[in-house]
């Protein structure tokens, strides 16, 4: 049971260096108790592939809906869309019927691809580089640096888990801005506007983003 795992704490100022040395992988190997099925190398490999696909999509020259469609494919391929959707709905996810949840997840995936696709478009010319990974609770956090010429590189963290049965990322943190937290606030506000009606929310989501 991964929850019994106690995260190893290193002093904050040493952590970056520890990351650089790949000590996160070592820490995972030395941890007592049942090991995570997912390891440092697999988490990094998944994000490396996702990042390669993002780079290819950005440099494909496609724009607008064609580009967002590419992002949606990348998203469906590398992200645990189910848990991302459920966490955005919060407690409302438990009240939804399986059919509603499936329809919501599909609409939500398109919404995220459009919304974040527009953001990634601003990164045209950026290159993403995988820097390192570290275990947190039941998952891994992979750190990438995005560089745009002449600008200070900025940090994108990808949280990766195999709890869905496959290695998938379930959260993105761009310069401290946490996708799950931001989207939970946003979906919560959209749901409030519809007085908790999930079907109406699904209709709204198809036009949003």
């Amino acid at each position: 049971m991964p929850m019994s795992m106690t995260p190893m704490k290193t002093p904050r100022c040493n952590r970056r260096r520890a990351l650089g040395l790949g000590a996160a992988g070592l820490a995972a190997a030395l941890l007592p108790g049942p090991a995570l099925a997912l390891n440092d190398a697999q988490a990094r490999a998944l994000i490396q592939q996702a990042v390669n696909d993002v780079n290819a999509a950005i440099s494909s020259g496609r724009t607008g809906p064609a580009l967002y469609a590419m992002f949606e494919q990348i998203f469906a391929k590398y992200a645990d869309v189910n848990v991302i959707g459920r966490s955005a709905l919060g407690v409302a996810a438990r009240q939804a019927s399986p059919a509603q949840l499936a329809a919501f997840t599909k609409a939500y995936q398109g919404y995220l691809a459009r919304k974040y696709g527009k953001r990634f478009r601003e990164f045209i010319g950026a290159t993403f580089k995988v820097e390192g990974a570290r275990p947190i609770k039941s998952f891994y956090e992979v750190k990438t640096l995005a560089s745009l010429r002449g600008q200070a590189p900025f940090e994108v963290l990808w949280q990766v888990s195999d709890r869905s049965g496959r290695d998938r990322f379930f959260n993105l943190i761009v310069e401290g801005v946490n996708m799950l937290a931001s989207e939970r606030a946003e979906i919560g506000a959209m749901l409030d506007r519809r007085r908790g009606n999930i079907d109406a929310l699904i209709v709204d989501l198809k036009a949003a983003g």
């Binding site: 848990v83 459920r86 947190i136 959260n171 310069e175 801005v177 931001s182």
Partner: peptide, 29 residues
């Protein structure tokens, strides 16, 4: 967005694992 980004600028990424959200262990889900 402002608070998250500002805290990141000033303190760097979240380093206290206890504060990190894990949706796979969220009882509400």
């Amino acid at each position: 967005l402002y608070l998250q980004n500002r805290r990141f600028e000033l303190n760097g990424e979240e380093t206290d694992d206890a504060n990190v959200y894990d949706p796979y262990e969220d009882p509400a889900l």
